[in-house]
Amino acid sequence: MTKASDSKNDVWRPHVTVACVVADGDRYLMVEEEVSGRLAYNQPAGHLDDLESLEHAAVRETREETGWTVALTHLVGVHQWRSSEHGDVVVRFTYAANPVSHDPGQPLDSGVRRALWLTRREIADLGERLRSPMVLMSIDDWLAGQRLPLSIVGNLMPDGGVP
């Protein structure tokens, strides 16, 4: 058991991230990105910003990394993992989303090479090139029917968490 500290800076904090499983038939929206000098594949995903709701972050990250606007339908799951990239713990809220519209002219986030649609088998075949084991776990959870209502995540942020 750790001792409580008087300093807020001494409190351990994980990285809070969001991701989206966006399905179109048997294909899933993926991001090809450069991470620490290597090519990696991930769902559209990223960090939660200050004063932002988890839902807003998931939609924003998907748009910024892929050019796709999506509509969230469910929470697929919450996953915890210690990153092999930076060694810190990541707590990831993964949402299911439907594709709504695409802006092919939108510049993508720094480091993102392209957005692409892959089948589950193609994603599994990427093996070690997946950014984390949460990528395939999220798809498998979605395929197994794991879908929680969006209301399961309470939002008490001012303005609904839209910065």
Rank of each mutant, 00 (worst) to 15 (best):
V76C: 12
V70D: 09
A23H: 08
D109F: 09
W81V: 02
R114L: 01
R13E: 12
T73C: 11
V78A: 09
S132E: 08
G77V: 11
P44T: 04
R82G: 04
G77I: 05
F93A: 05
L130G: 01
W117M: 00
W117R: 08
R120P: 14
N98D: 15
P163C: 12
D140Y: 01
E55Y: 11
A124S: 13
V18F: 11
W68F: 15
G67T: 11
M137V: 15
V112I: 14
S132H: 06
L136W: 10
V11E: 09
G105C: 01
E55F: 12
P158C: 07
D26F: 04
V35R: 07
T17K: 05
D50F: 12
A4C: 10
R129F: 03
D26Y: 04
V35M: 08
T62W: 07
G161K: 06
E52F: 13
G111H: 10
T94R: 02
V35D: 06
Q80P: 05
A71G: 11
G46V: 05
S84Q: 12
R113Y: 06
I139E: 08
R13D: 13
E32H: 01
D6K: 08
G127Y: 00
Q80T: 07
M1I: 14
Y28N: 01
G67P: 13
P149G: 14
D26T: 15
C20L: 00
L48F: 09
D49P: 02
P14R: 00
L29D: 08
P44K: 00
P44D: 01
A4Y: 09
T119S: 14
E128L: 04
L116G: 02
D109K: 07
P99M: 02
R63S: 03
S132D: 05
S110F: 10
Q43T: 15
G111F: 03
M157F: 13
H56P: 01
R27T: 15
S53D: 06
P158F: 05
W12Y: 14
V11L: 11
S101Y: 01
Y41H: 07
A19G: 15
L72E: 13
D50N: 12
E52A: 12
A19V: 03
M134S: 14
G67R: 03
P107V: 03
V89L: 10
G160A: 06
I139C: 03
E34R: 06
Q146I: 13
S83M: 09
V31A: 04
M1N: 11
E33D: 05
N155S: 10
G67Y: 06
G160W: 06
P104A: 00
R63E: 09
V59Y: 00
M30Q: 01
T62P: 10
V11D: 10
G127E: 14
M1Q: 10
L136F: 11
